[in-house]
Amino acid sequence: MLTSQRKKAILEALECEGQVLATALSKRFGVSEDTVRRDLRELAAEGRLQRVHGGALPASPAVAPFAQRQDMETGAKRRIARCAAAMIAPGQVAIVDGGTTSALLVAQLAPDLEATIVTHSPSVAVALAEHPRLEVVLIGGRLYKHSIVSVGAAAVEAISHIHADLYFMGVTGVHPQAGLSTGDYEEAYIKRALADRAAETVVLASAAKLNAASQYRIGDLTMAQTIIVETATPETLTAPVEAAGVSVVRA
């Protein structure tokens, strides 16, 4: 079998099975594990999969620069954002993550809503500057330009003083085995810290993020109590989430 044929078969197996193991692929193709690992390295370098110990998982496409992600799955993200915005009740403290779906979320908030929004995203804070009734708390720190959010020790310190009702978490990967993941090491720490300070964590997950993984793990699926997906999301993608005990809301 040619290298290109093996790689195509690996990607097809990932799509069907959600993960591949180097040992099993070696036996399937009749080649050494070193050969399979080389194939996996090359596919990972192309952004086609995410390597993990012993094999690989589907790679999330949601790691493109912010400007590019604004045009990805816009309709689905808007529906998810609308559903999330409706969860915020008057008087609550809600943490809103950075990201393109979060930007759409704050645009959906009713003009008469009285609540407090905590965010480490300058763009989210600016979008709410003209809202007549919302209190906005902006967490500072070093700016991570890819997602336009604050990260670092100063941000973690500020987060430690918050008690929130809800945290709307943005992720780049939701996978039954790999859990919740993102593309930046420090951002993963910030998301864990925010989840620790909220009574309920709600993950905003368009279809491209399901059954996919990125380099840095935020935590298990059960870090979230709820995951919002689009209505047309296949049951094959949501069933493992529900099996883990996480509620799935279709928007």
Rank of each mutant, 00 (worst) to 15 (best):
K8I: 01
R48V: 02
A199H: 14
G54R: 06
T201Y: 03
A76D: 13
A103N: 11
T201C: 12
V137I: 15
Y216C: 12
A56W: 01
G98F: 11
I117Y: 06
R197S: 07
A44M: 01
R6F: 04
A213M: 01
G91T: 12
M169R: 03
T172L: 00
L14T: 03
L104Q: 14
A205C: 06
A213F: 03
T226K: 14
I148P: 00
A224C: 09
G245Q: 05
G183Y: 11
I148V: 14
V149Y: 08
G183S: 12
K27Q: 15
T35P: 02
Y216M: 07
P132D: 07
A244F: 10
A76K: 14
T172V: 04
Q108A: 15
L40R: 00
D220M: 04
I10C: 00
M72S: 08
P240F: 08
L166T: 06
F66E: 14
V174M: 10
L43Y: 03
E187S: 09
L143I: 15
M169I: 11
H131R: 07
G30S: 10
V52K: 01
A107I: 05
T100D: 04
A76F: 05
M87V: 04
E130M: 12
A154Y: 10
D39S: 01
A89P: 01
A155F: 07
V229H: 11
L40Q: 00
N211W: 09
G152M: 13
Q177R: 12
V36H: 05
L2F: 12
A24K: 14
V248W: 13
K77M: 03
A67P: 01
V174I: 15
V126W: 09
P132V: 13
T101D: 08
H120D: 08
S4D: 13
S150Q: 08
D112I: 07
A67L: 15
C16H: 13
K7P: 00
T233P: 06
L204E: 06
A107N: 08
A243H: 11
A59P: 05
A81P: 09
G173P: 09
V106M: 07
A208S: 15
P61C: 04
V248N: 11
K27L: 14
A84M: 09
H175A: 01
K8N: 11
V106P: 08
L104C: 09
A103C: 10
L105H: 06
R51L: 02
V174W: 08
E46L: 15
K191G: 03
Q225P: 00
V136S: 09
A212D: 02
Q50C: 07
P90D: 03
L40D: 02
R51N: 02
S60I: 08
K8Y: 00
R82Q: 15
S206G: 14
R41I: 00
R48G: 01
V203L: 05
S60G: 09
R37D: 02
V137D: 06
K77F: 06
R41T: 02
A208G: 10
V203M: 05
L21T: 10
R250D: 05
T119C: 02
A9T: 13
L2V: 05
G75N: 13
V36Q: 10
G91C: 08
R197Q: 14
L14E: 06
I117P: 04
D112P: 05
S214L: 02
H175Y: 01
T116D: 03
A64L: 15
